[in-house]
Design a protein around this nucleic acid. Structure first.
Lengths: 143, 143
DNA sequence: CATGAAAAGGATAAAAATGTCTTTTAATCT
DNA sequence: AGATTAAAAGACATTTTTATCCTTTTCATG
């Protein structure tokens, strides 16, 4: 449902959400161990998110990745959309042709109802929402 | 969440549920086009299920795959367990170490609640359950 | 404006998932 | 018994995902 890459990306963004801001940028080198994602791989994912304006970055000395206030309003779905693409997550649970969220097959009634809810959660949950229960998340680093 | 292989396997078993019984065995050759799964690939999956006694089969002329009455009491989870393994489906949504259904991390509260329900559906839905709404399913072949 | 720190990007490698093919085994029919 | 049919089994091929490496570009700073 979610690729590994998306999971990594979400973990990385969550870490940035808790630990970074415009005045406090973080290098990939200081994140990857905390969240158990290979350094070069995480760099690629964060670069991709940055390129799509989901997160922010600056190069050079004192540079690094960070979340602006605007970035914090992004949803989990924004991340997943960039990394996995919309199609992957919305496709039919059983890979049935011409069957999707809007035109659900019989098994969607069973299995897809939950999936729809899952997608709604992704769409409705912003980074900020997650960080508001901050103490809970901090407990979980390193994740 | 569910691998392609599991989806194919479920489709194959559903087709058997609707069209086969002990006296009416079906060859892979007569299934694969109906459910849009490559012939050899489907064969392999059904063999695997048969080996684990999730479905039934006999070799030779008049042979083929079929579902016994006992087979029909199997749940979707029985299929998924054979094809994907229990670990894959129950692992943490974010791949967080030492986090699973029984020891959920903070994101499980958000995202995992739906997943738990999804797994419950798999565990509680038998092949027979699905076929009892038979007309609905038949409408969907070929899937 | 030179320097070094950091992201960006391209090329490639490794692993996992998906898919195909060939040979072997067992059941049935003549 | 022998021929034929179909699943069983396993080796092999392809594609996608995951991961790494290395060079280039950018930019803050002294």
């Amino acid at each position: 449902m979610l690729s590994n890459s998306s999971k990594y990306a979400i973990k990385g963004v969550l870490y940035l959400a808790v630990n970074s801001n415009e005045d406090r940028k973080i290098m990939v080198r200081d994140i990857f161990e905390m969240i158990h994602v290979p350094e070069a791989y995480l760099a690629k994912l964060l670069q991709e998110l940055s390129r799509h304006n989901i997160i922010s970055s600056t190069r050079g000395p004192k540079g690094g990745f960070y979340l602006s206030d605007e970035d914090r309003k992004r949803t989990l779905m924004d991340i997943v959309r960039v990394i996995d693409g919309e199609k992957r997550i919305k496709s039919c649970v059983l890979g049935i042709k011409d069957c999707d969220m809007d035109n659900p097959c019989v098994l969607h009634k069973l299995v897809g109802a939950n999936k729809s809810k899952f997608i709604k959660v992704l769409q409705n949950t912003t980074i900020l929402d997650l960080v508001e229960g901050k103490q809970d998340i901090e407990e979980f680093f390193p994740i």
